[in-house]
C-alpha cells in the first residue's frame, strides 16, 4: 500500500542537558516511507546521525502503541501532532506530505524540566498521584468482587476517566501549563466508584495542593487540554473535580 517516499525538512529541539540552552537544529531527511510511524522516522534520522558520528536525538518512548504515555513530542506546535486522539508513536507519516517542514519540540512546562533534547522529567505527575490517587486498601481481605454492584453507566464513566495515560500533553498544550485534566481524571475515576468514597474529600484536597506545589498553572477553561488529549479525556472531569473540591472544603469546615 506504500505510496511514494517523501523528503522532509525537520527542525528539532536540541538541548544537551537540563541546564544548557537549547536550539532548533535543521535536518533534511530523504526517503521517508508513508507507512512509517513518526518515531520510526526519528529512528531513521538517528541512524543517519550515528553514521555521521553525531549525537542522536534523545526522546522518550516505549510501547509504541499509544498506551504507555511515554512518547512526548510537540509537533508543529501541537502536543502529539496534528492527528486527533493519537499519540506521537501512533502518528503515521502518511499524514504528512512530501516537502513538508516539521518542527519538533519537547513537552514544555515549568513542572516538566527538559532532561535532554525531547526528553522531559514528568515525575511531578507521580508525586501528585502519591498525594492521594488511590484507594487505601491493603492486599488481602477484600470482599468478593461482585458484592457491590456498580451501575454499568457509572463503571463506564469511571473507565473513561481512568483511560488517561499520564503523558502530559494536557499540560504541554495549555498556555498556563495546568494539570487540571490529568488530576481531575484520577479524582473523577475514584469519586465515581463506591470504593473511592471514604477518602474522597482528603484525596481531592491533597492532590490539588500537591498539583499547585509542583508548579502547574491555573485552569482558565481554554479546553485545549481536551483537544490535545490522545485519549480524549473530557473536561467534564475538571468540573467534577471542582465540585468535589468544593464539597470537600465546605465539609471540612464544619
Amino acid at each position: 500500500m506504500s505510496s511514494k517516499a517523501m523528503n522532509l525538512t525537520l527542525k528539532v529541539w536540541r538541548q544537551t542537558g537540563p541546564n544548557e540552552t537549547g536550539k532548533l537544529a535543521t535536518y533534511e531527511l530523504q526517503g521517508v516511507s508513508p507507512d512509517m510511524s513518526f518515531l520510526e522516522m526519528i529512528d531513521m534520522l538517528n541512524a543517519r546521525l550515528i553514521q555521521e558520528r553525531e549525537d542522536p536525538i534523545a526522546f522518550d518512548h516505549d510501547c509504541r502503541e499509544g498506551i504507555c504515555g511515554m512518547c512526548s513530542m510537540v509537533i508543529n506546535g501541537t502536543p502529539h501532532g496534528p492527528e486527533k486522539a493519537t499519540t506521537t508513536c501512533q502518528l503515521h507519516m502518511r499524514k504528512f506530505s512530501d516537502g513538508d517542514t516539521i518542527v519538533i519540540e519537547p513537552f514544555r512546562a515549568d513542572a516538566f524540566p527538559v532532561i535532554k533534547d525531547l526528553s522531559v522529567d514528568r515525575s511531578a505527575f507521580d508525586r501528585v498521584i502519591q498525594a492521594g490517587g488511590y484507594v487505601s486498601v491493603k492486599t488481602g481481605g477484600s470482599p468478593d468482587a461482585n458484592a457491590t454492584p456498580i451501575p454499568k453507566k457509572v463503571a463506564d464513566e469511571a473507565f473513561e476517566a481512568a483511560a488517561c495515560i499520564g503523558c502530559g500533553a494536557c499540560v504541554a498544550g495549555c498556555k498556563n501549563a495546568s494539570a487540571m485534566l490529568f488530576v481531575s481524571a484520577k479524582v473523577s475515576q475514584l469519586a465515581l466508584l463506591p470504593q473511592g468514597q471514604s477518602e474522597a474529600a482528603t484525596r481531592v484536597i491533597n492532590m490539588v495542593s500537591k498539583m499547585d506545589e509542583e508548579g502547574f498553572g491555573n485552569c482558565t477553561n481554554t479546553e485545549v487540554c481536551e483537544a490535545v488529549c490522545p485519549k480524549e479525556i473530557s473536561v467534564r472531569n475538571i468540573a467534577r473535580m471542582n465540585r468535589e473540591y468544593l464539597k470537600a472544603t465546605v465539609l471540612s469546615e464544619d
Binding site: Y134, V135, V137, T139, G140, S142, P143, A145, T148, P149, I150, P151, K152, A155, D156, A158, F159, A162, Q189, L190, L193, Q195, G196
Partner: peptide, 15 residues
C-alpha cells in the same frame, strides 16, 4: 483485590 482498588472492569447491565 483489583475491584477494591477501583479498577474499572467491564460490567453488565445489572452492575
Amino acid at each position: 483485590q483489583c475491584v477494591a482498588q477501583g479498577v474499572p472492569f467491564a460490567r453488565d447491565y445489572g452492575g
